[in-house]
Nucleic acid binder design. Structure first.
Length: 263
DNA sequence: ATGACTCCCAAAGGGAGA
């Protein structure tokens, strides 16, 4: 096997890893990403499909949870070297929403940010608190001399360009001014939003809900993000969304989002 | 628009998602 000149790093909210296992494996076989962050495993640790993932050529670490949430990191022909499995700052947090590891020379934080609906309300308050914790932890990564990325389902619509109908999503937690401002402040630490930096003013989506044939009609949101610290951003080559995965039978409501970086 | 659609658990219908 020839060694490729770029590394491919991807994030994919699978919406139930066991319900979607064949979709996930088909996509891995197609793209052959080097590092993958998964969200919404919706399984306990013991139910993670480790053997099927390993047969596909990937080492994995994961943090599951019964019924909801759950995150994992996969590395092609390697096992991610875990550095964290909880976002610091709240000892009472029992939700599986963060996992961090080194893989193929890059520090990867894989995250599943709380949805926050309905808003206003306690779930929305929790979302903002989780984002504040993310800010504090991200500060420790952004200025590392080593390449680092924060990737996953942020549940944040960064701007009106990132939603097919801003008015229809006006009251949604993903689209609130406080949430957008918090995301913007995170970027101001020095993170590069890889998709936006390459697409410029062109619209691109990563999620389409299951209603009203929104996927087929490309009425979506951009809420899955790839953030690069400066040491990694200089190596960014290409980005993409594998929208075809969203159009397959039995698909997740999210599509995989990927970037290629120089080795 | 208390909607729709799909997962989970569990064994029906409710919680959660976004």
């Amino acid at each position: 096997m020839t060694r490729r000149r770029t590394l491919t790093i991807a994030t994919f909210n699978v919406n139930g890893i066991n319900a979607r296992l064949s979709n996930l494996l088909a996509w891995l076989d197609y793209l052959k990403p080097d590092v993958v962050a998964l969200q919404e495993l919706k399984c306990e640790d013991a139910a993670f499909p480790r053997e099927a993932i390993e047969r596909q050529g990937y080492g994995a670490i994961w943090k599951g949870q019964r019924a909801w949430n759950g995150v994992a990191l996969l590395a092609r022909d390697a096992v991610p070297v875990e550095s964290r499995r909880v976002l610091p700052g709240d000892a009472s947090d029992r939700q599986s929403r963060y996992i961090e590891a080194a893989a193929h020379g890059i520090v990867i934080g894989g995250l599943y940010l709380p949805n926050g609906n309905p808003q206003p309300g306690p779930k929305f308050d929790d979302k903002l608190k989780w984002m504040a914790r993310l800010h504090r932890h991200a500060r420790t990564l952004v200025d590392l001399p080593h390449p680092a990325a924060l990737i996953g389902d942020f549940n944040v619509i960064p701007s009106d360009l990132d939603v097919y109908d801003p008015a229809a999503w006006k009251k949604d937690a993903l689209n609130q001014p406080e949430v957008r401002a918090s995301y913007a402040r995170l970027l101001e630490q020095g993170w590069t939003d890889a998709l936006r930096s390459v697409f410029g003013s062109e619209q691109v989506f990563t999620f389409w809900d299951y209603f009203r044939q929104h996927a087929e009609r490309d009425r979506g949101l951009r809420i899955d993000h790839l953030l690069l610290n400066p040491a990694l951003a200089t190596r960014l080559v290409e980005v993409g969304v594998d929208r075809w995965v969203r159009l397959e039978p039995g698909a997740s409501d999210h599509a995989p989002v990927w970037m290629k970086i120089q080795r």
